[in-house]
Design a protein around this nucleic acid. Sequence first.
DNA 1: ATGAAAGCGCTAACAT
DNA 2: ATGTTAGCGCTTTCAT
Lengths: 339, 339
Amino acid sequence: MAGPAKIKDIAARAGVSPATVSRALSDTGLVAEPTLSRIREVAQMLNYRPNVSARNLRTQKSMAVLMVVRDVGNPFYLEIMKGVEATARAAGYSVLMGNTENNAEREVEYFDMLRDGHADGMILITGKLPWSAEESRTHLQGLPVVVALETIEGMGLPHVQIDNVGASRAAVEHLIGLGHRAIAHICGPIPEIMAVRRREGFRQAMRAAGIAIPDGYEPVGDYLLHSGEALCRELFERPDRPTAVFVANDEMAFGAINELRRLGLDVPSDVSVVGFDDLFLSQAYYPPLTTVRQPRAEIGQEAMRQLLRVLAGEKVEAETLEMPTTLQIRGSTARPRSI
Amino acid sequence: MAGPAKIKDIAARAGVSPATVSRALSDTGLVAEPTLSRIREVAQMLNYRPNVSARNLRTQKSMAVLMVVRDVGNPFYLEIMKGVEATARAAGYSVLMGNTENNAEREVEYFDMLRDGHADGMILITGKLPWSAEESRTHLQGLPVVVALETIEGMGLPHVQIDNVGASRAAVEHLIGLGHRAIAHICGPIPEIMAVRRREGFRQAMRAAGIAIPDGYEPVGDYLLHSGEALCRELFERPDRPTAVFVANDEMAFGAINELRRLGLDVPSDVSVVGFDDLFLSQAYYPPLTTVRQPRAEIGQEAMRQLLRVLAGEKVEAETLEMPTTLQIRGSTARPRSI
DNA sequence: ATGAAAGCGCTAACAT
DNA sequence: ATGTTAGCGCTTTCAT
C-alpha cells in the first residue's frame, strides 16, 4: 500500500464497509461493540488520518477560521492570536492568519476565502472595509464575521472590544490625581475610530477636572515609534511645556520617553508618561511604563467564542462585548515637580 | 442559483463543457480565443471562485505550508513568518502556523497534518523532534521539511540558519576590543544546540584573546526576562564582578540591564551589555542595546524558497544555507571605567 | 447495526 | 480545440 491509508483500506482489513468505518471513526454511536474496537484497532495500526480535502468537500466545511489583521508583524496581535487559537483548537478549528497591510485588494481576497471554502468564518481586526457602505452590506450579507478590538459601524456585526473612552479617561484621571494639569495627548491616527475614542477619553477627563486643553496639545501620530519622538519634541519646544503626556499607544510612548531623555528631561521626575496597550516589554522598559492593559488573550478568546456561536447557527445578536481594561501603574508617572 | 457558482454553472452559461472551463480558468493555453474570453467573462460575472476542497482533493495538494514554532507568542518569530508568508504567497501557497509549546504531542500532530493533506510541506523552527533518532528517520522519510534557525542533526534535512558561533565571537570581540577582560556570558538553555553554539563563540573569542574564563562566569538561563535578572544578580554578588556581559538573547539582556540599574550600576559606563537577536524594541530601549542582528525576514524567505524547490520535486541536497548576521553597535557598550 | 450507492466540485486521461 | 468520462476520499441518505 503506497501512500497513506484510506477508509477503504481499513474497511477491507476489518471486514466491514467503508460506511461503517466512517461511522465508527466519527463517534456517531451507531456502531456496535465488537466491530467498533476492531475498526479502531485497524485504524491505529494503519496510522490512519482522514483526508481533510475529501472530508471538507463532502461536508462543505473547512473547519478553519480566518483571523485578519492589518499587520502580522505587530507583536500586539500575537496575544489575541493565541486566545483565538486556543479556543479554536478546542473546538476542532484551525486558524489561518490574514495580513492586509491596509491594502484593500488583500482585504477583498480574504473575504473571497470565505466563499471558496478556505475558511468557514472570520475574525476581523480591522477598522475599515474595502467597499463602500452599501456594497459592504451586500458583501457581508450573512457572512460569519466577528469584529475584534476595532469597530465597524452600521453592519450589524458582533463586536468584542474594550471601552477605549473609559480606559483613556481613567489613565488621564490618574495623571490629574497626581496633581498634573498641563497634560498633553499624543493621538493615534485620527480620524480612525479607536484614536478618536482615546482622544475623547482624554477630553472627558480634562473637562471633568475643569482643565482647558491648549491648542496644539493634541498632536496626531501614527502609532509608530518615530512619531512618538517627533511629536514629543514639538510638544517640548513650546513655551508652555506639559508636565505629563498621555500617549495613545505604548510604542509611541517609548518614542516620547526616548526623546525626553535626549532633551535632558527625566521621566517621571520631570515629566510623567502614560501609554496604552501594555506590550510585552513595557514592564521591562526603563522606566517601567504606566499604561492601560488590554486583556488581549481574552479578547481573542471571546471573539472566537462568538464566532463559534455564529457558526453553530445561533442567531447572534449584533451585540458588543466589552472587555475590562486595567491601568497598570508603574514607574513612568509621579507627582509633578512643583507640588 | 443558491450558493457560490460552480464550474458547471459557468459551462452552462458559456455553452461549453466543464472541462473547457477548467482549462480556460487555469491558463493552460489549451483554449481558443473566442471561447476563452467568453468563459472569463462569465466567470467574472458569476463571481466565480474555484472550491479549494474539490481542487485539493483532485490534485492531491493543499497549496499550503506549515510553519511550526515553539511559541507563537514570541514576537521573534513574527518577522520570519513575514518572510515565509511573502514568498509563499508569491508562489500561490498559504501559510499555516503551528505552535508546539515544546509539547511532543503537538509536534506529532503537525507532522500528521502533512499526511492528512492539511499542508504540502513544513518549515520547522524547532531544535528537537518528538521521536527517537531512529524513529525520526522513518517518520521524516521523504517528507518535505526545511529547518530554519534551529538545527536538527543527522536527518539530512535542508537548513537555513546563521553562524551562531561566529556571530557570538564577533560580539565578544567587540567587548574585548573596547578593553574589557572580565566578561561573563549568560547562556541560553544548554544543552540546546543554539545555546551551546553561542557559548562556543564566547569561548573562542576569550581563548583567542588569552583570557581565562572564571568559574561561574557562564550561568545558564532560559531566554526569558526573569532569568536575565536573576543570573545577573548572582554575577554581581561575586567578589570578582565582570565589567561586561554577553547575553545569549535580547530578552535576557533587558532583564540583566534592569537588574544592574537596581544594583545602582550604570550601563554602559559601569558595565557593558551585548545581546543577541535585535528585537523590535531593542533600539527603543534605554540604553539602546548593542546586539547581534539576525536577518529574520530573509531567513524566512530563504527557508520558503528551499521548501518550494523541494515541493517542485528538485532533489535538494541537505545543504545548510548560512545567512549573514551583523553586530549592531549601540549605546549599551563602552570602554570599561578603569581604562 | 450494517451495506450499497450516490455525490460533493474539480481536473486529467482519453477520446474526437 | 473541445467533449466525455472517471475518480480523488469521504459522508450520508436510503435500504436491509
